[in-house]
Nucleic acid binder design. Structure first.
Length: 221
DNA sequence: CTCCCGATAT
DNA sequence: ATATCAGGAG
């Protein structure tokens, strides 16, 4: 993996998605944290549908702990994994009020201590809400990075993050993160990736292999 | 590693 | 019917 090849990949996805951005609706760091927590194993679109009403009903940490656990569970039910997430949100809000005066902290070490907030969510909050360069490795970033050879197939998400940070200039981390997500979500999809019309096909071993398989299937029929 | 889990696409 | 979706905790 040469630096020139990395540059070519970054420039190509930059051309495809010049203004890739966070698609989770939010108006402050607290709302962003709640939205990202809710987004685990769920599409952004579904999260936005739920938070549209949720953020109208709940504004501050106090609001989330003022209701019963069961009521909050019902308010986020459509997201899935709602029992874990409702419990985490209430624990998160109590901890914010106890230790941080109800505000979302800025440091990575503080963020990952929050209930329901892991490394990926912490990186999203840091980069999107506080403008700290970070590469949050979600399912799309992991899949795309491995397909394009930016990481190895057996790498953990942490290893993928470290390899991307090493290969991508720091000032491009956050934007690259968003472009990799857009590329994975709208083009290099998990089930039906658009290999046939992919500008990175010649740089993608899996894409070529995948096209052969498709041709084979067609010829078998 | 398993479990949590409803909505959507294929 | 099955895979997948901006993961995290035990």
């Amino acid at each position: 993996m040469t630096g020139k090849r990395v540059r070519h990949i970054l420039d190509t996805i930059a051309g495809m998605y010049p203004d890739a951005h966070c698609e989770l609706h939010h108006s402050n760091p607290f709302e962003l944290t709640i939205a990202v927590l809710l987004s685990a194993q769920c599409t952004d679109e579904t999260v936005n549908k739920v938070t549209a009403d949720l953020f109208r009903k709940y504004n501050k940490p106090e609001d989330y702990i003022a209701v019963s656990l069961e009521e909050l569970e019902q308010d986020i039910r459509r997201i899935g994994l709602f029992r874990n997430k409702a419990k985490n949100i209430q624990s998160l809000c109590r901890l914010l009020l106890e230790k941080y005066d109800g505000e979302i902290p800025r440091k990575h070490e503080q963020l990952v201590e929050l209930p329901g907030v892991g490394r990926k969510t912490a990186n999203v909050v840091m980069s999107n809400a506080f403008d700290v360069p970070a590469i949050a490795v979600d399912t799309h970033v992991e899949r795309v990075s491995k397909r394009l050879g930016l990481a190895d197939p057996d790498d953990t998400v942490l290893q993928v993050e470290q390899k991307l940070m090493k290969k991508v200039p720091r000032e491009e981390w956050t934007q690259t993160h968003h472009r990799l997500i857009f590329f994975g979500r709208y083009h290099c999809k998990a089930q039906n990736p658009g290999c046939g019309v992919c500008p990175l096909l010649d740089k993608c071993g899996e894409g070529k292999l995948r096209l052969k398989t498709v041709v084979k299937r067609k010829s078998i029929k």
